[in-house]
């Protein structure tokens, strides 16, 4: 059982991710899931437009919370 000594200074504890990282990861997961589920080969133009604009909206949301170290990479996508 942990005697709590290390908890005083947090040495063996992982720092919780910054809130924007959590939000960025959530958006990334949603975008990946949509991407995996969408069959681009058989999509109609209307379906493609809906999918593309939805993904673009996720990118817009991601831009607001992207971690600083990924900002330049994300801007390229």
């Amino acid at each position: 059982m942990d005697d709590g000594d290390d908890m005083d200074d947090g040495d063996d504890m992982d720092a919780p991710p910054a809130p924007n990282v959590n939000e960025f990861c959530s958006l990334s997961e949603i975008a990946d899931q949509s991407d995996n589920e969408f069959d681009i080969e058989s999509a109609t133009p209307a379906e493609l437009e809906n999918y593309w604009r939805s993904q673009a909206a996720l990118v817009d949301q991601g831009t607001a919370v992207v971690p600083e170290e990924l900002r330049d990479d994300f801007a390229l996508m």
Binding site: F24, C25, S28, E29, L70, D72, D73, F74, L76, M77
Partner: peptide, 26 residues
């Protein structure tokens, strides 16, 4: 564009390493 490829790879790595998102190969 190689820069886009490199950026994509870094974003994918972040997804895996930080977000814990499993990559999917179709």
């Amino acid at each position: 564009d190689p820069a886009v490829d490199a950026a994509d790879a870094r974003l994918d790595a972040f997804d895996v390493e930080v977000c814990g998102i499993e990559p999917v190969d179709e």
